[in-house]
């Protein structure tokens, strides 16, 4: 299984990472190398094996429904690239 240039661009678009034409070629070669490594998995028959998502197969712990977080907007927005009137600014969202 190897990726086409088109697929790489599609994946990069899904991941919102700009790939310049110059980068695409090298990226494609390296991704195909990695996918080659990953392909080894397909040799194993895992039918009947339950997938394992966590090392400890426990159940979710629940938090009591209580407000515990104070307003820390000013602290949190110190790191923001662009804020105004307490809002984070982004290029116009069109829907």
């Amino acid at each position: 299984m190897s990726l086409s240039n088109e697929q790489v661009l599609r994946v990069a678009s899904l991941a919102r990472i700009e790939l310049t034409a110059g980068e695409a070629g090298d990226t494609l070669a390296k991704l195909n190398g990695i996918l080659g490594l990953i392909e080894q998995m397909q040799a194993i028959d895992t039918s009947g094996v339950a997938p394992m998502s966590h090392p400890q197969e426990l159940s979710q712990r629940l938090r009591e429904d209580a407000v515990t977080e104070p307003d820390r907007r000013d602290d949190y927005q110190k790191t923001a690239p662009a804020v105004e009137n307490g809002l984070y600014l982004v290029p116009k969202v069109i829907e």
């Binding site: 662009a82 105004e84 009137n85 307490g86 809002l87 984070y88 600014l89 982004v90 290029p91 116009k92 969202v93 829907e95």
Partner: peptide, 15 residues
């Protein structure tokens, strides 16, 4: 929520 009133051509995000 995205607030669309104009902030110099930007949208404001309220989380």
């Amino acid at each position: 929520k995205s607030l669309h009133e104009d902030f110099h051509g930007m949208s404001g995000i309220d989380l």
